[in-house]
């Protein structure tokens, strides 16, 4: 029953998103909602490895950036259509996730985290030194002039992101309720006990890292068209890494709803704060919220709700 309800919800969100493009004319709506959708994908992807498996990834920017630059390269050189960009961006980030996962997930968890942080600096360094990717100067991307079904390209991008976001959240839900997900939960709770109870620990961890990386790359693939001008330092930024781990932690890492909730709340707040206050202060807000939640409410908003409900029923 629950499955059917969720399926209806997914279909409703997608068709609702497509319908919106017929009615809303204000381009700023699409421009800012795109970012919210992007963070729903990134936060959900982060949570598959961070929340379900218990491995903290500081390198969201690198996976996202690799997807975005793969797409950027394919646009400027081969002019590939959007679906191919998404496949290519997802694949390259999946390979990165696999490689980093295989190299470091045999060790203690912190080594993985350190490696991901260092990796994002290196990916940025490599792109800065690659003229074919625009180097430090960046690259310009022209949107296709012809758009079918939608009145302009921004609306097409928005619809694409709605579909990817729903797909990502559905995948997270599926993982959570599968044996794969239960194996991951066992690993998160106690890796040694998991292994001694037959869970193929390394294989599941690497698979989780690969899936998470692939989704981040997919989130990055439409980005060149969205931003039109792409340069390494803002594409592979620490802000993105902080955001995409702060959102699940603030929302709650235990289930799929947590990252979605965190992403919507935090990125909407940020959009408003950037416009009304300043971008530095909005980062300050994120940092304070992150540290505050980690200290005081480790199970996030979902955890707070649950304990409130429990108190009421007790």
């Amino acid at each position: 029953m629950k499955k059917a309800a969720l399926l209806i919800l997914a279909v409703t969100v997608i068709s609702g998103g497509l319908l919106l493009t017929a009615y809303i004319e204000n381009q700023y709506f699409y421009f800012s909602t795109y970012i919210v959708l992007q963070y729903i994908i990134l936060a959900t992807a982060w949570n598959i490895l961070g929340g379900y498996t218990g491995y903290v990834n500081f390198g969201t920017g690198a996976y996202f950036g690799l997807g975005a630059y793969t797409a950027g390269y394919l646009i400027t050189n081969f002019n590939l259509p959007l679906p191919w960009l998404i496949v290519a961006g997802g694949t390259s980030s999946a390979v990165l996730g696999l490689a980093i996962g295989y190299l470091t997930l045999r060790l203690k968890g912190v080594y993985f985290s350190i490696a991901t942080l260092a990796m994002s600096i290196v990916i940025a360094t490599l792109i800065i030194n690659t003229p074919a990717l625009g180097g430090a100067k960046g690259m310009y991307i022209l949107r296709p002039k012809e758009v079918s079904f939608f009145s302009n390209y921004m609306e097409l991008l928005f619809a694409t992101m709605v579909i990817i976001a729903v797909f990502t959240v559905a995948l997270a839900w599926f993982i959570e309720n599968s044996w794969f997900g239960r194996g991951l939960a066992a690993i998160r709770d106690d890796e040694v006990a998991a292994a001694c109870n037959g869970v193929p620990v390394l294989r599941l961890k690497v698979l989780s890292a690969t899936t998470s990386g692939a989704l981040m790359g997919i989130a990055g693939a439409p980005y060149p068209y969205y931003i039109s001008y792409m340069e390494p330092l803002s594409t592979i930024s620490l802000d993105m890494a902080v955001n995409s781990l702060a959102m699940p932690l603030i929302g709650g890492t235990g289930s799929w709803i947590g990252p979605v909730l965190g992403a919507i709340l935090l990125s909407t707040t940020q959009q408003v704060a950037t416009v009304t206050i300043s971008s530095e202060y909005n980062l300050l807000i994120v940092g304070i919220l992150l540290v505050g939640f980690v200290i005081l409410a480790p199970n996030g908003l979902v955890g707070l709700f649950q304990s409130l409900l429990k108190r009421r029923t007790d």
């Binding site: 239960r182 194996g183 939960a185 066992a186 709770d189 106690d190 006990a193 037959g198």
Partner: peptide, 20 residues
């Protein structure tokens, strides 16, 4: 070393599914 996020029953299901 229990799996702390699971119930007792779910704890047993892990080896049943993965080891057995």
């Amino acid at each position: 070393r229990p799996f702390r996020s699971m119930t007792v029953l779910e704890n047993l299901c892990i080896p049943l599914r993965f080891a057995a």
